[in-house]
Design a protein around this nucleic acid. Structure first.
Lengths: 458, 458
DNA sequence: TTGAAAGCGCTAACAG
DNA sequence: CTGTTAGCGCTTTCAA
């Protein structure tokens, strides 16, 4: 089709990729790079490739006139004293750099970045002093006189520390890693958002990898994070089904751990008995506490008599929720609810709700331990002509995507963001020198979200 | 409340943070680190702090018995030849390292990572050769004999390249940056997912920052990305309202550009006239093409007569969509649709739909240029007793979160993932040496999602 | 091919 | 408080 996209200005549209997209170039607002001579040794006229030090450093400060900076369009700020090096003999540094840097620069058409060395020289101080002023752990003992000179110089040159160099020298990066199946699932996106938030608080940058539920890819990402020397890694949604995969994952995490890294997994604890011995801490939802809070919240709205759709009695998660709910009621001085077991699916919810109605329920509020059960119960109530919330309030645990038809359902929402935050916090908090390694587990209660399906009583 | 979360096992629960979460430690499956003597010079008995080279390197390979590796629980693989250094006098390297590394290691209780140097020595080759084998751009000329020795040594030691060092030496990192308001908005999460996908294809890692709609924070993240030497940056949802903020953003991006970085913005083009002169390429949705495709799709379903709820006639975006739709119909040999203008909100949609019905519509399909208009139209149809899709099909452009009541609406979905992918691709593709800087623009058509609100005709 | 050596930009001893 | 110096681990000339 090949139309261009900016009004009706015509441009040569060359199709690209899937011939699906249109592309256009337009002269932008950015000033051109200096069109004159390239900054480095190439093309200086003197053809002395090896011995000539095109990138040598002068010992003296560059004198006045250098570094108006801040944003010098097309200028050649720190470049010019480089040329003086040949004149004053290379000063205090061994003068013998190959022109590689300069040449590469010319190719990529990008100015060489301002280094700490540039700043130090302009300020007339040693590299160490400049580092003390500009480096991490800001407030290190440097005389205010020099400190200011350094700061001015840095500002003037538009200095930005090279964090890569910093990391290498310091021996630890400011990076943390996050491995999730992907970000298109809002659940993992929410979790990621929490990790981002926690990282920002600590001044760390987050490397995100998408495992796409592919063990190979997950392992590769983990290896990359390790290679990047990420300080901590948060994993979520990584479920190795087969034993082989689990072993490989375990090995990878052990390697990571061995080099001082700390990994934290987010998710439900593995079913008892399963080999869940990964060297990673764990952040899990605290169903029990969340259930207790739900009970409290409902009690606060005036409800006194409850029925609980508990699903199958052998379901551990469900049991936790029921127990927590009962405890919460007890805490509010209320009697235990009526418990109805059934299959864990929608039909189970329907059946249980019908049983409840048939039995002549005196409950004012129905609590389902899962969204599926709640959906079934809602259907039963509708069929029986019991209006929600007028005649019956309904609440549920909202794990998994909540079906649209119950978007007004009061739920306990899984605390994704908080789990993400806590996971990173946990990973970053030193584990103490206690040997042997002890896995730490943090449980985060879900959030009670009261919506229209629950009414206030009294 | 302080219960513990694993069954009924009791543990010392210390409250943490908001007293909201429970924590527990449990002895895990990870073997303890070697409990014996620390790996470094500390505690060797000889008390010669400075001149003694605790970390000196032996020139010989460590001999048999070293490096069973791959996953050696509790062992001290590369550590042991370090101790031999004092005996054989430090070999060919200048022997004068301070014991810093070793000491820090002891503190952090982590083995020093295996370096390329370790591998080279074990393989009995030079650092350069090892680098040539294990470094990037794999297939460099190295004799198969040595190559294999190096590879074996690497495997044996469990070598993982230090990407930080690599980046510093190479002068370019394998990182790209992504700046979004946050990931809790599924739109940006989807976009981020696209960026992740594209990055993975290119073997790059993605640093994600959340600007939280705060210019200060956005700038800070951008600076960090620049400092990390990210090769490319993708920005989305960064809208600087005031001129000052815009100028700062511009300055920041120019700096980034000056050091060779390439930024790409994702989103609608700025309204004409606005100072949208950021030195960043642009990826935008191609409404026109998407609208044409919608027309095609609907025509393919048998629809022949359409009505378009076009919103206010001065809305540029809406105009594009209408124009594209008309063009699409024309392409299918169909006549122009009936165009109905109204206000751009829900009420406008309702009013327009009512006008259409009142006029005795012969259209079989209603297309709204926004979800809000569609919602209004659906309401009107419902009120008038016109069943959708039986008596009238409805489709819309799905920008913004689609209201739940229209979750079965046929829409043109904004191509978030693809825009993310394309953005990174664009940033990574060299811009060519063309001076002056030309902003490139890529338009990506949205995806047509046919749902129940449209029926097949004939 | 291979090895020796010079850095990448920064931090952190160590010595004044 | 300030400067000197030795690296961090790797890539890449340059010379053999």
């Amino acid at each position: 089709m090949g139309r261009n996209i900016v009004g009706d200005r015509v441009a040569g549209n060359r199709h690209d990729r899937s011939s699906d997209e249109h592309e256009e170039s337009a002269t932008g607002g950015l000033p051109a790079a200096a069109p004159g001579a390239p900054a480095g040794g190439t093309g200086t006229g003197t053809d002395v490739p090896a011995s000539h030090p095109p990138d040598g450093r002068s010992g003296a400060d560059p004198g006045p006139g250098v570094g108006t900076a801040e944003a010098r369009p097309g200028g050649r700020a720190p470049g010019h004293d480089r040329r003086r090096a040949a004149l004053d003999g290379g000063g205090r540094r061994r003068a013998s750099r190959a022109g590689r840097g300069a040449r590469a620069r010319t190719i990529r058409n990008a100015r060489r970045a301002v280094t700490l060395d540039d700043v130090a020289r302009l300020a007339g101080v040693s590299l160490a002093t400049a580092s003390r002023v500009l480096g991490p752990g800001s407030a290190r003992r440097v005389g205010s006189e020099l400190r200011e000179r350094v700061e001015r110089a840095a500002r003037q040159l538009g200095y930005t520390p090279n964090l890569v160099a910093r990391s290498l020298a310091h021996g630890a990066s400011d990076l943390v890693g996050l491995l999730v199946p992907g970000l298109s699932d809002p659940q993992f996106a929410a979790l990621a958002d929490g990790v981002l938030r926690a990282a920002e608080r600590d001044g760390l940058a987050v490397l995100v990898g998408a495992g796409r539920r592919d063990p190979e890819r997950e392992l590769a990402h983990l290896a990359t994070l390790r290679a990047q020397r990420a300080r901590a890694i948060v994993l979520a949604g990584i479920e190795t089904a087969d034993a082989h995969g689990a072993a490989r994952l375990r090995a990878e995490l052990e390697r990571y751990h061995a080099t001082g890294g700390r990994a934290v997994r987010v998710g439900r604890a593995a079913p008892a008995g399963e080999a869940d011995d990964l060297p990673a801490d764990l952040v899990v939802p605290d169903d029990r506490e969340a259930a207790a809070r739900l009970a409290q919240a409902l009690a606060a709205l005036g409800h006194r008599r409850f029925a609980v759709l508990a699903g199958p009695s052998e379901h551990a998660e469900a049991r936790e929720r029921v127990a927590g709910f009962i405890a919460g009621l007890a805490g509010a001085g209320l009697p235990a609810p009526r418990i109805l077991h059934a299959s864990g699916d929608r039909e189970g919810g329907r059946a249980a709700a019908e049983r409840l109605l048939a039995a002549g329920a005196d409950a004012t509020c129905l609590v389902a331990v899962s969204a599926a059960l709640a959906a079934g119960a809602l259907a039963a109530l509708r069929d029986r002509g019991v209006p929600v919330p007028e005649a019956m309030s309904v609440a549920a645990f909202g794990d998994g995507p909540v079906p649209p038809e119950v978007s007004s359902l009061t739920v306990v929402r899984p605390p994704l963001e908080r789990m993400g935050e806590r996971a990173l916090d946990l990973a970053l908090r030193p584990a103490g020198a206690a040997e042997p390694y002890r896995r730490r587990v943090v449980a985060v209660p879900g959030e009670v979200v009261i919506r229209e399906s629950v009414r206030r009583i009294g």
